[in-house]
Design a protein around this nucleic acid. Structure first.
Length: 447
DNA sequence: TTTTGAGTTGTTCGA
DNA sequence: GTCGAACAACTCAAA
């Protein structure tokens, strides 16, 4: 049997056609491009819940992509299994000329891609991967001395200076879509085939109005308003072009663009300092004696701390897979400072629940809140959840939306007293950091 | 090499 | 009610 000659573009977190660097390069330079997606059993089996909004999101995104490809006489091959096994089967099915993909820098993805790249190379097939999920990556934005930035503001300054000349470049050309492999519609596994159930997922529209971006700095801090773009999930799965969004942001609102630059800042932190995945960026902060209090942690997870803004945030997260950014800061400060619980606990819970979960941003945010990260909040800066409520949800719009029993006798009593918890946090941090400094001084004296 | 200015998002205290 | 200082020094980036 003659095997079909194809080039395969392997979709992962770039679930769109528009401005998709790897896909469009494959079409332009190779042709006969067969789109592929693999539901990775290693990832799916780790998920706790059979109703997972992310799996549902991806499934829906691919369903949409498939329909779009089929209007062009092509389709997408959707596999379910271990990527290595899937690729071995594909090698038997097709005469593969080349494989393209887009870079993914998370530790698991790097390992996976190395494995597949080795397999393909040993079969004489080039595996070409492209920059797509960010404007700059790896060590593309560094200090003049070549070292990585660890402070946001100078990073952002350099980032903008480098973006200016390339901002005018056109989007990747879509004129080669005829070079898609022509095939009849391929069968795609249903959510149930994958072992998952449909969810109550609500997908924000994959574009954002210019009005919202223009007003972003005025509205973004009020969780009761629709003042944020809800683009994080689309950036996570590549259902929008990061370049298109960034151009819009740079043109319309510096504060909005800054948030997107933060995303790239944390990506490069993870790239240059991979230890942040399980340790504090600043080692002294690994000396903090965290409480081990499962009851407090459970109360926090379930939104029963007795602090309405914290509880509203956690319930929004549990109910929708999303949480307003201002409230993410409040609940993470509360976990790490008021409850003195390890930031990794909070990070892991967010990783389970967030639809827009991005390792680098989640880790960066938690290390920021716990003061252990680079360019983090100083440790003595402890959010006052009551004051935050007065400032950012004065009409209680947000709180009443998520905490129905607020204001009734059924509402929980505070599990800690703000003043007491704040003092305990500052003192505990101070002692841990002082002891770290004494150790360093002693080591310095030895030389 | 040294120096200088600066650093996401806050809160509390006391004058 | 308002305002500046303290929180705690430290490290980074760039000239």
């Amino acid at each position: 049997m003659n095997k079909s000659k194809v080039t395969i573009h392997w979709f992962r977190r770039d679930l769109r056609i528009f401005d998709n660097h790897g896909l469009l390069r494959a079409l332009k330079e190779h042709g006969h491009v067969l789109p592929l997606f693999i539901f990775d059993t290693a990832i799916l089996e780790r998920l706790e819940n059979r109703s997972d909004r992310r799996v549902d999101f991806i499934h829906r995104a691919i369903t949409g992509l498939k329909a779009e490809l089929e209007t062009r006489g092509s389709s997408i091959r959707v596999e379910h299994g271990d990527p290595l096994e899937v690729w071995k089967r594909l090698l038997e099915t097709y005469d593969i000329q080349a494989v393209t993909a887009n870079h993914d820098h998370e530790p698991y993805a790097l390992d996976r891609d190395n494995t597949i790249s080795d397999l393909l190379k040993s079969n004489g097939i080039p595996f070409r991967s492209f920059k797509d999920i960010s404007i700059f990556e790896r060590g593309e934005v560094v200090k003049d001395d070549g070292g990585p930035y660890t402070v946001f503001t100078p990073y952002a300054r350099k980032w903008r200076a480098q973006f200016l000349p390339i901002m005018v470049e056109p989007f990747a050309s879509s004129e080669n879509l005829d070079a898609l492999w022509k095939t009849e519609a391929l069968r795609m596994p249903s959510l149930q085939d994958l072992g998952f159930l449909p969810t109550d997922l609500r997908i924000p529209p994959p574009e954002v109005g210019s009005q919202l971006i223009s007003n972003y700095h005025l509205t973004r801090n009020f969780p009761g308003l629709e003042g944020t773009s809800r683009m994080s999930v689309h950036l996570r799965f590549g259902t929008v072009s990061p370049r298109a969004l960034m151009k819009q942001g740079i043109a319309l609102n510096g504060a909005f663009a800054n948030e997107l630059i933060w995303r790239e800042f944390y990506m490069q932190v993870l790239w240059h300092f991979p230890h942040v995945v399980d340790r504090a960026f600043k080692p002294a902060y690994d000396r903090i004696p965290w409480q081990v209090n499962e009851d407090h942690f459970t109360s926090w997870c379930e939104g029963r701390t007795g602090y309405p803004l914290v509880d509203a945030g956690m319930r929004e997260l549990n109910t929708t897979g999303h949480m307003h950014n201002r409230v993410r800061m409040v609940v993470s400060s509360f976990l790490t400072k008021h409850l003195l619980l390890d930031w990794r606990w909070g990070e892991a819970y967010f990783a389970e629940q967030l639809l827009d979960f991005e390792l680098s941003s989640n880790n960066g945010g938690w290390q920021w809140a716990s003061s252990s990260g680079c360019d983090a909040a100083p440790y003595f800066r402890v959010f006052n959840p009551t004051l935050q409520l007065e400032k950012f949800d004065p009409e209680l719009t947000y709180v009443k939306r998520w905490v129905e029993e607020y204001g009734t006798p059924n509402y929980s009593r505070p599990i800690v007293v703000h003043d007491v918890a704040r003092k305990r946090a500052i003192e505990t941090y101070k002692m841990a950091l002082d002891s770290a400094r004494r150790t360093t001084d002693k080591q310095t004296q030895l030389f």
